[in-house]
């Protein structure tokens, strides 16, 4: 299991680093919100999910897309605006989707997909399907009205959904304590009627263990569950670089999170030979994905008018 987790974690980290390195070439002509530092939350929760389970995410969604099994080549091609991208170059980094892998999209408007995830869970329950939904969002989303509305409905209908709040403490450059009169997010989830827990340390193995337990609970029909996962964004809000020079946070604050970097933690748990093999395979896969994106064509002009409406009606 450690090897699988390490592969997923390392792969996301390296994809993000490659994206950051490609960024100055201006071939990625779109905003990217890197998930470096936050990978463990997506990897941990997705390790507890089945292929038929479904996730909804956010504009900082590379980690979730990859952790749930989204196609890497299509992702990079999407960043490059190529027609081979997961959204044919029409969605970009903030709207990655791979329905075959259960990645049902992401929104650039904070909080928006929480309600979509709840609706999807309603459909699963109505059809008596065994799958569940995991809804990922940030700490900022919990300030949106749709957060409370969605959790209320999920409790009311006892829906098969896991709410995952990736709390990196910042909404762009504003700390949670400057935005929330009472920062206890789990208390709000409990007040709306569902069990809630906070995972403080961003530790992957802990996230996997807790994830498996609560996913099993949800799958057995016990209703929604809330998980707040404390984590930390290493890079700037949007873009490839660091942003400590802006002064809204300090390198001292970031240091403990970097010291407990989960990529290194997991690496230490794996046989060095296997580790090298995994890393080599991942590097080759990433290189192939960037080559694929580079060599893929852009959409034709006719694509502009395609996909406004679904043509075939029931």
């Amino acid at each position: 299991m450690h090897e699988q987790l390490y592969r997923s974690l390392y792969r996301i980290r390296r994809v993000e680093e490659h994206a950051a390195r490609a960024y100055p070439s201006d071939k990625i002509k779109s905003p990217v919100h890197l998930s470096i530092g936050q990978e463990a939350v997506s990897v941990g929760v997705c390790a507890a999910l089945e292929p038929n389970d479904v996730v909804f995410g956010t504009y900082r969604g590379h980690a979730l897309y990859l952790a749930k099994g989204g196609d890497l080549k299509q992702m990079i091609a999407e960043l490059y605006g190529k027609v081979t991208g997961c959204a044919r170059g029409k969605g970009g980094s903030m709207h990655l989707i791979d329905p075959e892998a259960g990645v049902m999209g992401a929104s650039a408007v904070v909080g928006t997909t929480i309600a979509n995830a709840v609706g999807y869970a309603y459909a699963l329950k109505l059809r008596r399907e065994p799958a569940i939904v995991a809804s990922f969002f940030g700490d900022g989303a919990t300030e949106e009205g749709v957060f409370a509305e969605s959790l209320n409905f999920a409790v009311l209908k006892q829906l098969p959904i896991l709410f995952v709040c990736e709390n990196n403490q910042y909404a762009i450059h504003t700390h949670q304590r400057q935005r929330q009169g009472r920062p206890d997010i789990c208390a709000r989830a409990r007040a709306l009627g569902m069990p809630a827990e906070c995972i403080e340390n961003n530790e992957l193995l802990n996230l996997v263990e807790r994830g498996k337990q609560v996913v099993g609970r949800i799958r057995s029909g016990l209703g929604p569950h809330f998980m707040e996962a404390m984590t930390y964004r290493w890079q700037e809000h949007v873009g490839p670089g660091a942003d400590f020079h802006l002064g809204y946070r300090t390198e001292d604050e970031a240091q403990p999170w970097k010291d407990s970097d989960q990529v290194h933690r997991l690496a230490d748990l794996i046989d060095p030979v296997r580790r090298t093999e995994i890393e080599t395979e991942v590097e080759e896969e990433i290189a192939a994905a960037f080559d694929f994106a580079e060599s893929s064509p852009f959409p034709s002009p006719a694509e502009l008018h395609e996909h406004v409406f679904q043509e075939v009606c029931a």
Partner: peptide
């Protein structure tokens, strides 16, 4: 909850 219920409606539609 017009906001969330509209979002839920979309989620239901995405689910078929």
């Amino acid at each position: 909850s017009e906001d969330a219920m509209t979002g839920a409606a979309i989620g239901m539609a995405l689910a078929g």
